[in-house]
Design a protein around this nucleic acid. Sequence first.
DNA 1: TAGTGGTCTAGACCACCGG
DNA 2: CGGTGGTCTAGACCACTAT
Lengths: 222, 222
Amino acid sequence: MRDRIHAQILAGRYEPGDKLPRDADIAEDLNCARATVQRAMQDLSDSGLIERRRKGGTHVRRDPVARATLDIPLTRREIEEAGGTYGYRLISRTQRAAPRAIRQRMGLSEAARLLRVEALHLSDGRPFLLEDRWVNPEVAPEILEVDLDVISANEWLVLNKPYTRFGLEITAEAADARTAGHLGIGDGTAILVVERTTWIDDSPITSVRAMMAPGYRLLAET
Amino acid sequence: MRDRIHAQILAGRYEPGDKLPRDADIAEDLNCARATVQRAMQDLSDSGLIERRRKGGTHVRRDPVARATLDIPLTRREIEEAGGTYGYRLISRTQRAAPRAIRQRMGLSEAARLLRVEALHLSDGRPFLLEDRWVNPEVAPEILEVDLDVISANEWLVLNKPYTRFGLEITAEAADARTAGHLGIGDGTAILVVERTTWIDDSPITSVRAMMAPGYRLLAET
DNA sequence: TAGTGGTCTAGACCACCGG
DNA sequence: CGGTGGTCTAGACCACTAT
């Protein structure tokens, strides 16, 4: 039934900006329950095709947006599922005042002292991902006691501090000398950088810069 | 109610891999309808926290995946919404046999002849995105008659050939001489490349390589 | 094949927000 | 304020798949 509703709407050839009938009317037309229409329309809304507002009604989006979902697995699982042997090496672990850029991204005050962790994840012994992470010990004080030589901050946080939301920023950059050294690549090589900041409700937990070794492909789908 | 169910599950401190009670039992425990539980669990499943299988039951995922949604607007809208003036220039338009890589990605036979379009999108007169596109005229024959000097293939396709699904592949690459020339950057500069292949049901419509000018940031959120 | 999640119905009430 | 979408209930049947 939901498929039929989807088909009807798409076949109805509504133009961008057009207003659709109210759910109740569509339900009557198609001889089905309103809840079913509601669910079907919710789907179309989720996929970026229409916009719904109480009282305002349902409209076809003027600029239909292509909406994809991006899965970011735990680094260890990602490597293992690609058939590689996972390796991990802690590079540094310090506590210090956060630089401006990080404070801004996490929405912290100037006084904030954070835990900074640099680590390298390897696949079959070859550098796979270099991570530069800042952790807010106000939210996750236990991490100060964790032996990060044994378990990566990535893993510990995922298992112990479930986030409620996060933001991603994906860029391409030229590797600087230090980064290139750790990744074992030429200075200036193009690498994919994924920056992720995660939150528990409104408290920032961690902000991490993941520098991927050359050849990495980030996949997404509808 | 749904929020309460979410909270209960999260507070229940289930470990990765644990099996949750059946929907019906949860509903009884919380004294609500099973449909409500079903909806709440669906949400958790969508966000990558649990896995559900008929008969198999509901389990907490062993490797909770961070799932983000990525919006890819029409290039023109993206530039305009950032406050820029949109410009567009067609570079080339040819019909030819598709190279192997493209055929493979679109799942086409060797014989397939495609329309190839190269175009530059500009923001305030500066190169913003260089697109290298292949279109399948079997699915969208009308595009052969479209004046691509006036409307970009990007825009025409979005308005006239609504896809049913697509796949994305995001990489960082060093710009080759030709690309660098069009984007007005130095040879070898790191650029973000987004490859997208779209389909109507099981027929491939188009496969496009979008090469973003340096400094471009792709954003995603939970 | 039996047990689980997935979908649907008919009805009710609520929450938001435009006129 | 009234009209719209959002959520919930109680019940039914269906679809998939683990055992």
